[in-house]
Amino acid sequence: MSRVPRLSAVALAAALVLLVGGPASAGEPTVSDPRVVAPFDFAAGQTPENIALEPDGSADLTFAFARQVARVTREGATTVLATLPEVADPQTPGLGAAIVTGIARAHDGTLYVNYATGTAENGIWRLAPGGGAPEQIVALPSDALPNGLALDEECETLYVADSARGLVWSVPLDTRTPAVWASGAALEPTAAIAFGANGLKVHHGAVWVSNTARSTLLRIPIGEDRAAGPIETRATGLTTIDDFGFTGHGDTVLAALVMEGRLELVRPDGTHRTVLTAADGLDNPTSVAVRAKTVYVPSAAYFTPVKDPNLLLARISKNKL
């Protein structure tokens, strides 16, 4: 999640960072046939911030400023599943507005979402598979900004990227007690940009985290005792990186560069190249999901003059050259 009032600071940081590029390599994924399947209403707060996928290929999206969770079919039909309760005087760090951010889906259909408010409502909320009112299950400190969210069902633990404090929380579902799982300078924001740890995924025995302020993609091994291992920097130069997704079982990543308006393919060696741009329909992309041969990219239109939030789908396939 990136803050609109800090546009100038983010733009300055973007100008100072050199992106690592290069042509497609044989055998690596290619992205083609982009098409916008669902436009959204920016004025109504329908700014899609994060995404989780349903078994039928529908996308569950968080609409940050509408405080909503919505489901969008592959054909673009949109249904609001829940609206988080209004907060009288939100004190969200760096924002001042209540926003719904990360989302994760359990196999039974339960949805978990982060609600950043700076008040007692700050934390993780649950939506039951059968519907009903959302329920807060974890409270986080008021100065935390919960952003990226992932569920490790093997050990029944939620992981949360805290953009304001610059750390990762772990929350066992049996106790629902949050604890600082990983911290350090690599996760923290900077003086210029107030958003540090942002996107988060659990992948191959590690928690992967993006840091918007530092333009980096990080990997944190999960030890046998479930403790965090040393933080590894896997890629740099990812200017204004928001959330990201893996293309498959390997460590190749598709990263949403929100201010840059680009989708970047990040190779396991850390080099990267642009695969989609605003010309393809992106408008401040915020997150990524991949299912089989389809890439999903929500755009929130936070910073562009023409407000065109949307959900874009594209085809992902192996390069046969």
Rank of each mutant, 00 (worst) to 15 (best):
L149R: 03
T277H: 01
T239K: 12
P134F: 09
L151N: 06
V10P: 01
P5H: 04
T73Y: 13
K293P: 04
T239H: 12
H107A: 15
I241G: 12
G118D: 02
G199Y: 10
G27H: 08
A164I: 00
A255C: 10
P29G: 02
L200K: 05
G109Y: 03
L311W: 12
V160K: 00
L145Q: 01
L16S: 13
G45C: 01
G21C: 01
L84M: 14
T247G: 01
G248I: 12
G132D: 08
G245K: 08
A179E: 14
V37C: 10
G132C: 06
A13C: 04
T157M: 08
E49Q: 04
G250A: 08
G131E: 03
P298V: 03
V266P: 11
M259A: 15
D251L: 08
E75P: 08
T233Y: 02
G281Y: 09
G245F: 03
R74H: 10
V138H: 05
G166D: 13
E49A: 03
P85G: 12
G45L: 03
T247R: 00
F246A: 12
I124S: 02
G237I: 14
A150M: 03
D162H: 12
T294E: 08
L167P: 00
V168R: 00
P129R: 10
G229C: 10
A206S: 13
P93S: 11
